[in-house]
Design a protein around this nucleic acid. Structure first.
Length: 569
RNA sequence: CGGGACGUGGCGCAGUUUGGUAGCGCGCAGCGUUCGGGACGCUGAGGUCGCGGGUUCAAAUCCCGCCGUCCCGACCA
């Protein structure tokens, strides 16, 4: 490719809307252009990098026995209503209506399409397992698109779905995908960790996230310094506390707490630490009231709560909800709550006693409240938000919090979709059983951004070879010199014949502009042909990632660039 | 949706406080000079000042409404 023909105008100044490094550089280096919030056009350079990731993904998926299909972007609403996700995805799903008044959606993911597809084609256990994947645009009307390609409303994703007879088969399929993902991200040159994660609106059981480390990452995970434990912040489970000694308990006593409707205020008023307060938060779960108890110094992890009740919708009580049950916001406690309110407590509540909590009466709290004696707990569960410094569940060392970008997420979803969608096969014993499914997402466009976040410096992008849109750029430093131009052409053809993806900067620009653009666009190897070198019989080479410079003979300069490239990361 | 900021040629910005008929740098086109780290000179093209309404002799500037974009929080690849 000749740069004089390449549709790529670089920007000298940072566009004012771009903040994150990947966003800034992808715009400046002419990889992407914005169309509207969270929607981008991929320019030729961006396309080439995107295709490279797609290719790596295809090779690893095909090599793992998955088969590529293509499902539509535009989908009927019905199966989504059956699984409950028409509601659960809510406003995130782009919804539209066709001329007949039929409700349609733009696919945010494709379980509701692939599951009936397989059910219609494969009624026998003999045909299992099967794993189908596609690389397709996904649509999510995000609350807040941001950071260029990192969080967008239209993105390219590889999604795969495995169908097995039983749990054992699922585990094998899942493990195959986990290994395939490792190879994909290794080949992309990403620095990443694999963490235990929350399944979100997909639902189901065990699942892992592939997290690329990055300063602008929106996703936090906890890591044990000993390497014993890695988990998504939302999914992380703190080590359960030792149960409190309940041999001597305070009596339950009501105290007046005028205008103290917050943990902080009550804590100050009564001179008790927040950790001795029992926070009682009310939720509406699909129309049913649920009280969640956590110590006063902890937060309820609403993601875990949503997971406990998935696919029912969980929302915090609003003023009207308190009023309808005769409760006073800020003074709610678990003792004496009506029977129809389910009471859930975090495991950490077992570690405390003689709680201070609301008296269910305006301006009053109680002290000395204890589980069983004074209030019922219907279920203990893991419901708190983990914090930096919490003990590792494996070894007890304080956990650290790290920042990252989720580039892949794999799930064991079991029969979460096959059951409601009645997607069954006939098993060996003649009975119908729902498929045991796994699903596997990998963000292609997000991987582009994550790679730039990890590979850039003050001059521009420093691509790993596998993702660079071109591997070598041949810079003709003196555009007016026919001999220099001819040597540049010759080396360009030499590199092409060696199978190297090469770009010839034949533009009528000064050398400085060419160097700056080459650095900005991030090609791994730069080869400079100039007057000086041609006279001396040499070319100059530069490895972009390290800045290391060297010279090579003019004759065979192409081979030297190819050798340097082969040694590049 | 809640909080904050900003919308002026392709990009970055000034002008808005104090209304007077739009400017700078980069980029773009032409000519000439330059030619190994974002060259220089001359000439030129390019703007419904986000949109709609209002006030005024006169609005980029003042008032009202709307839209868009970005940043901080609630969803996810």
């Amino acid at each position: 490719m000749r740069m004089s023909r390449l549709f790529a105008r670089t920007l000298r100044d940072d566009p004012s809307e771009a903040e994150a490094p990947s966003h800034r550089l992808l715009l400046r280096a002419a990889y992407i252009r914005q169309v509207m919030a969270g929607v981008y056009t991929m320019l030729p350079l961006g396309m080439r990098t995107m295709r490279k990731i797609e290719r790596i993904v295809r090779e690893e998926m095909d090599g793992s026995g998955a088969q590529e299909i293509r499902m539509p972007i535009i989908l009927p609403a019905e199966p989504w209503k059956v699984t409950g996700r028409w509601q659960a995805y809510g406003e995130i799903m782009f919804k539209l209506v066709d001329r007949h008044g039929r409700e349609l959606g733009l696919g945010p993911t494709h379980e509701e399409v692939v599951t009936p597809l397989v059910a219609g084609e494969l009624p026998s256990y003999r045909d299992l397992p099967v794993n189908l994947y596609q690389i397709e645009w996904k649509y999510r009307d995000e609350y807040r698109p941001r950071f260029g390609l990192l969080r967008v409303r239209e993105f390219l994703m590889k999604d795969a779905y495995s169908f097995d007879r039983d749990e054992e088969g699922l585990h094998a399929s899942y493990d195959t995908m986990l290994q395939a993902y490792r190879r994909v991200f290794d080949r992309c040159g990403l620095r990443y960790v694999i963490v235990e994660a929350d399944p979100g609106t997909i639902g189901g059981g065990a699942n892992h996230e592939f997290m690329a480390n990055a300063d602008v990452g929106e996703d936090l995970y906890v890591a044990c310094p000993n390497g014993d434990y890695l988990a998504d912040l939302e999914a992380a489970t703190p080590r359960p506390p030792e149960p409190a000694d309940t041999t001597a308990l305070e009596p339950l006593t009501e105290v007046s707490t005028p205008s103290a409707a917050t943990i902080d205020a009550v804590s100050k008023l009564l001179g008790r630490p927040a950790s001795n307060m029992l926070k009682c938060i009310l939720f509406d779960v699909g129309g049913r009231a649920v009280a969640v108890l956590v110590p006063g110094d902890r937060e309820v992890n609403e993601t875990k709560l949503a997971r406990r009740f998935f696919p029912a919708l969980v929302r915090r009580f609003e003023d009207a909800d308190f009023a309808s049950l005769g409760l006073v916001k800020g003074y709610v406690g678990p003792q004496g709550l009506p029977d129809e309110i389910m009471v859930l407590a975090d495991h950490s509540v077992r570690g405390g006693k003689d709680w201070v909590t609301g008296a269910n009466k305006s301006e009053h709290h109680v002290t000395g409240a204890n589980a069983e004696r004074d209030f019922r707990v219907d279920e203990y569960a893991d419901l708190v938000q983990i914090r930096e410094g919490d003990p590792c569940p494996a070894c007890g060392q304080p956990l650290r919090i790290e920042r990252s970008i989720v580039v892949g997420h794999i799930y064991q979803i079991g029969t979460t979709y096959s059951e409601p969608l009645k997607a069954t096969f006939v098993d060996e014993d003649g009975t119908e059983r729902p498929y045991v499914m796994g699903c596997y997402g990998l963000g292609i466009t997000r991987t582009i951004a994550a790679a730039v976040e990890q590979n850039h410096d003050e001059h521009g992008i420093t691509w790993p070879r596998a993702l660079a849109p071109f591997e070598v750029v041949v810079i003709v430093a003196n555009r007016d010199d026919e001999q220099v131009t001819a040597e540049g052409e010759r080396i360009y053809l030499e590199l092409a014949s060696l199978g190297v993806e090469v770009l010839l900067d034949d533009r009528d620009e000064s050398a400085g502009v060419k160097f700056a653009d080459a650095d900005l666009m991030g090609f791994p190897v730069q080869l400079v042909v100039g007057r000086r070198g041609v006279d001396a019989g040499t070319v100059d080479l530069k490895l972009r990632a390290t800045g290391a410079r060297s010279t090579a003979p003019l004759q065979g300069g192409g081979q030297a660039a190819a050798d340097l490239l082969a040694a590049a990361p």
